[in-house]
């Protein structure tokens, strides 16, 4: 009976994952491996293709209602162009199109703002997923906030991995593939933002988790009882223990020949914390050095006094 409960929990979290994160790893890998027929992503590899990509997405804009229905086909935080749909001041396409008359410095900032807009939307999706974890909504509300504040960037980085390969990443609802080299060619410190995520993702992808494994792993990350400032750690640890058991069983059944996968996965959580710390420091540096930068209020809330 206990194993049956753990399997039921795995199924429940997988269903919630599919509900809130429509661009699954399965879909992303199909796009990346060219198995989607004619629907190949548009490739952005230089400034010219970036301009063309902007045009391309402009033609394919999704009506707001449809977008709300989809909530997000884009799973990770680097969702360039997504701001276009919201009409928010953070949107990339919501602003004027790129022209030679603009100061060159604005391009990176505009792109960065569009990423922020998509990230904020992704935080909302992760919050909905967290609320679907049995017992999460019964925790002290302040502890729920703390778990999200500390967990959400880690979750977003894990969710970015399926969208990436060694050469680049899918963005904009899987419609665009942006090359790693292009991201590296942006001016500093923007050029330094994605490289650590690529390095992590390439290694993480070798574990070959599928979407049902991912759902459990994300729940484990969210339910970390060692986040600073938690008021009532015990119920969080109890919830996490159950999800950990479910994950362990899931990996045994789903990857019977992959030895020590559970242990390897848990080790990734240490790497993740370092990546998030570095990411937050980079954002703080940007805030100091970029005169025109504004940080999305939700991301500001999350990153303030984080590390």
């Amino acid at each position: 009976p206990e194993a049956a409960d753990l399997r039921a929990l795995a199924r429940h979290l997988y269903e919630a994952y599919l509900k809130y994160f429509p661009l699954t790893k399965a879909k992303a890998r199909a796009i990346l491996s060219g198995k989607t027929g004619d629907n190949m992503p548009f490739v952005i590899h230089d400034m010219k293709s970036l301009m063309e990509g902007e045009q391309f997405i402009n033609c394919k804009q999704v009506p707001i209602q449809e977008l709300q229905h989809q909530t997000s086909t884009l799973t990770a935080g680097l969702g360039g162009f997504a701001g276009a749909h919201s009409g928010s001041e953070y949107g990339f396409l919501g602003m004027s199109s790129i022209s030679g008359e603009e100061p060159p410095d604005t391009l990176e900032l505009r792109f960065f703002h569009s990423c922020q807009s998509r990230s904020a939307e992704a935080v909302r999706e992760v919050t909905e997923f967290a609320k679907s974890i049995p017992g999460f909504s019964d925790l002290d509300l302040n502890d729920q906030v703390t778990l999200l504040k500390y967990g959400v960037i880690e979750v977003l980085i894990i969710m970015m991995s399926p969208l990436m390969n060694k050469d680049g990443t899918l963005i904009s609802y899987g419609q665009i593939f942006m090359t790693r080299e292009f991201l590296k060619s942006l001016r500093k410190p923007f050029s330094q933002m994605m490289e650590p995520k690529f390095e992590f993702s390439v290694k993480f992808n070798t574990l070959e988790l599928d979407d049902s494994d991912m759902a459990l792993f994300l729940a484990v990350i969210i339910l970390s009882g060692d986040r600073p400032g938690l008021l009532n750690v015990k119920p969080i640890e109890q919830l996490q223990e159950t999800v950990l058991h479910s994950l362990e069983l899931q990996l045994k059944l789903n990857h019977p020949v992959s030895l020590q996968l559970f242990a390897k996965l848990l080790q990734k959580m240490t790497d993740l914390r370092q990546i998030v710390t570095d990411h937050v420091h980079l954002i703080q540096l940007l805030k100091k050095t970029e005169v025109d930068m504004c940080l999305h209020p939700l991301l500001q809330e999350i990153m303030k006094d984080l590390y």
């Binding site: 935080v123 909302r124 919050t127 509300l141 729920q144 906030v145 504040k149 809330e301």
Partner: peptide, 20 residues
């Protein structure tokens, strides 16, 4: 609570998307 107003809002609103 004020420090994390939007997160509180996201956690308490059921499914309706908060204006981000």
């Amino acid at each position: 609570k004020e420090k994390h107003k939007i997160l509180h809002q996201l956690l308490q609103n059921s499914t309706s998307p908060v204006d981000l």
